[in-house]
Design a protein around this nucleic acid. Structure first.
Lengths: 343, 343
DNA sequence: TTGAAAGCGCTAACAG
DNA sequence: CTGTTAGCGCTTTCAA
């Protein structure tokens, strides 16, 4: 429970107030807060009592000014795509906020102009408003990482440095190939032979990574992939069209999709044709969005371990901001499969 | 575009650096940044050039310390409920971040312990880490608002002060009754007569507000509501069970639901019975979540104007933090109806 | 219109 | 183990 102080002070108490009440110097109070080991037990206790009595909490601005750190982590928020099923960000942000708090950090959200992936970072950096950034869009050609590196800005990426194998920054990612493999193998175990892939355009590294898992799983059982793959935009409409073609031309009996959005497109096609997902045709999505969880009869989906990602991101952040800074190797986590009625 | 400075300075430039380069005093630079009107045009220009050349941005911590304000708005983030279709928070947070930035504020996210609705606020307040809060859970009996008021903490609520008609704090809310009325009238216009309501338990003020809109719309056409309403938990399973009962016992031909989650429950029932949403039976949800947008054949849903809510919240915040502080009357916004295949 | 002095609350460095 | 001194970078007096 949160204690409610008896009186509401007009101005919050300062270090000096506590020092006076406890009969010690200001520095001793500071030590009591930041390096309790330095104090003798009885002094510490007396100071602690004064702190409790006054309801003292160190002034953040003063501390930030002095220590040249804000204990704030900046994260740029991109608008949630309307009409898609993506819920990754929401879950990740929450996990990050929670994990950061345990490490003594808060998360500062900001936005930037849509066309300019760099806008927003610069101002925060120059005004020393945040200690570090977490970036989430690591598609190839995104200049954020490179730019932040030249500015010597500490940051951790959720996403591999595609195309830059030896990037000097810490990163955490989820193994998309393993996820698609998991999904495909699951369908194979259910007896499916003609399992189609609906993914993104070839220039999406994330999409190609996931696709590789699908083809790997099929090849492991000696099954062909020819004619069973489709690469489209990440929209429901694209998923619907692609699945219609794959049903007609390739006689697919199951679909593995690069996103829940595409998987919903498949469900549209099935609904139009009076096919019941999970009975005649099986479908697996990617991301385990809320949509997957509530749509009838439930959409089987690859679930990213976002809580774990947040933990690793914060761990990397602590290394980065430590003395001396430490940059560990990239971390690749394995997703799981949330099984539901659609398979 | 963001300009990339030629050199990367180890320590960011300060006011003094700019002053020296421009050949003026530090105070003049400060004025150039905060009160440009006070400077003569040519001085201002010279200072501005120096600022640009050095890439100067005022140090946030120092400014915060001096002005006793952080230009940060705190918002507690509650975990996204798994297995529900609620996407309100995500959209609202994004709008808030965007609108806040235009007003010169950033959003600081924090979490609290699950059982204690107060935890998290106290620390931020005492350490003067944020200037104000935005609170979003205004269910009756939530002590946040009252507690913040006794602490004289500035805050704006997204949600009416249910049960406290004359609360002294600014609030912004969406008219749930109007939304349900809109949905119900839409179904009436489509020729439905037996329109059922699936809502939340009676102790939810938000639920009762929305329910009132449904019954109001029916009564306006002289139609009875008896036996057509159900009050359950906000889960897909509850929605499914309730709709099955209402179909059997009340011969409902359409459903208005207090949430998209409940509406998805209805879709489950229809799928089980081989009924096609929008043909035999119509369904309308509430919140226009991503689920509503992508589920076949599309779920008609009441859409809250969250962008507008964010604008009003920030407007209220600016009043609250102005000199002197100004608290305007509560703002009630009207939702719209996103029409899709389910009706 | 510009400049000088003071100090916001804290902690690093050192002295005792 | 505790206290003294200095100063982080900025803005708010007030004086010129």
């Amino acid at each position: 429970m949160t204690r409610i102080p008896a009186r509401v002070p007009s101005a919050p108490p300062t270090l000096a107030d506590v020092a006076e009440l406890a009969g010690v110097s200001r520095q001793t109070v500071s030590n009591a807060v930041n390096n309790p080991d330095l104090l003798r037990a009885d002094t510490l206790e007396r100071v602690q009592e004064a702190i409790d009595e006054l309801g003292y909490s160190p002034n953040r601005a003063a501390r930030n000014l002095r220590t040249r750190s804000s204990h704030l982590i900046g994260m740029r928020m991109n608008p949630a795509q309307e009409g898609t099923a993506n819920a990754t960000m929401d879950r990740f942000v929450h996990s990050l906020v929670e994990t950061s708090r345990e490490a003594g950090y808060h998360v500062l959200l900001f936005t930037g102009e849509h066309e300019d992936p760099l806008s927003g970072y610069d101002d925060l950096l120059r005004s020393t408003a945040v200690d570090a950034f977490v970036i989430t869009d690591t598609y190839l050609g995104n200049p954020q990482a490179t730019w932040l590196e030249t500015r010597r800005a500490p940051f951790v990426a959720f996403g591999r440095p595609w195309g830059l194998p030896d990037a000097g920054h810490p990163w955490v990612d989820v193994d998309g190939a393993a996820g698609a493999d998991l999904a495909t193998t699951h369908l194979l175990d259910r007896g499916h032979q003609r399992i189609a892939w609906i993914g993104w355009r070839k220039d999406s590294f994330i999409g190609e990574d996931r696709r590789a898992g699908w083809s790997r799983a099929l090849k492991a059982r000696g099954l062909p992939t020819t004619g069973l793959a489709s690469r489209v935009e990440d929209t429901v409409a694209s998923g619907r069209e692609a699945s219609a073609v794959l049903l007609d031309d390739a006689h697919a009996t199951a679909f593995v999709c690069a996103s829940d959005t595409l998987a919903m497109g498949v469900l549209h096609t099935l609904a139009e044709r009076g096919l019941v997902p999970g009975r005649e045709i099986s479908v697996v999505g990617f991301d385990d969005s809320q949509v997957a969880q509530v749509v009838p009869p439930g959409l089987t989906s690859v679930r990213q371990p976002l809580e774990q990602v947040a933990i690793e991101v914060v761990k990397a952040l602590e290394g980065l901001l430590g003395h001396p800074p430490y940059v560990g190797p990239g971390v690749l986590l394995t997703p799981t499969l949330a099984m539901r009625g659609s398979s």
